[in-house]
């Protein structure tokens, strides 16, 4: 038994109305998310930063507020947040290195050498300039040797 035309029309109308209901009436608002709920702990905070709990969604992207040791910042989108975290880590590592003993020693040595060179230029100008000259002449000799070897090699290849 086939359904009557009246019943068929009613069914079509009901389906059409429910479809309109789904696609137009039910919309969501862009939510405010909780960073502690959505982010993995290793992303949520690091040595020098912490992400604030409230995460707004702006258009298609999440906007994160970051409490960084050197001030508050924001990141628009997950991708930018990952970049920022990388930068924070790098800054953190540099800061640690700067505070380390090794950095102090290297800095001391570099300063010592620079001062020594400057003093040499003033106290023994002839010898210092000769050293610079010998350094430069060694470079020229090395370049000439390389060129000669290159020419010899190409000559040998041609003769083969």
């Amino acid at each position: 038994m086939s359904p009557s035309p009246q019943l068929f029309r009613t069914l079509v109308l009901l389906i059409a109305l429910s479809a309109v209901g789904i696609s137009h009436a039910q919309f969501e608002k862009s939510p405010v998310l909780d960073a502690q709920t959505i982010l993995r702990p290793e992303i949520l905070s690091g040595k020098s930063y912490r992400i604030a709990d409230a995460v707004e969604t702006v258009g298609f992207l999440n906007r994160y507020s970051i409490e960084f040791d050197f001030g508050n910042l924001s990141a628009l989108g997950n991708e930018q947040l990952i970049q920022r975290i990388g930068e924070f880590e790098a800054i953190g590592m540099l800061r640690e290195y700067k505070q380390s003993e090794e950095f102090g020693k290297t800095l001391e040595q570099t300063l010592e050498q620079t001062v020594q060179r400057a003093l040499n230029l003033v106290l023994k100008p002839g010898k210092s300039l000769a050293n610079i000259g010998s350094g430069a002449s060694k470079t020229v000799i090395r370049a000439r040797e390389t060129m000669r070897r290159g020419l010899e090699k190409s000559g040998a290849e041609k003769s083969c």
């Binding site: 696609s23 137009h24 039910q26 919309f27 969501e28 608002k29 862009s30 939510p31 998310l33 969604t57 258009g59 298609f60 992207l61 999440n62 989108g77 997950n78 991708e79």
Partner: peptide
């Protein structure tokens, strides 16, 4: 490919998809 952090069914998204 859609670079979207959170896809909520907002009128804006619905319009795009349609």
């Amino acid at each position: 490919p859609l670079d979207i952090d959170l896809l909520a069914w907002t009128p804006q998204i619905a319009a795009q998809i349609t």
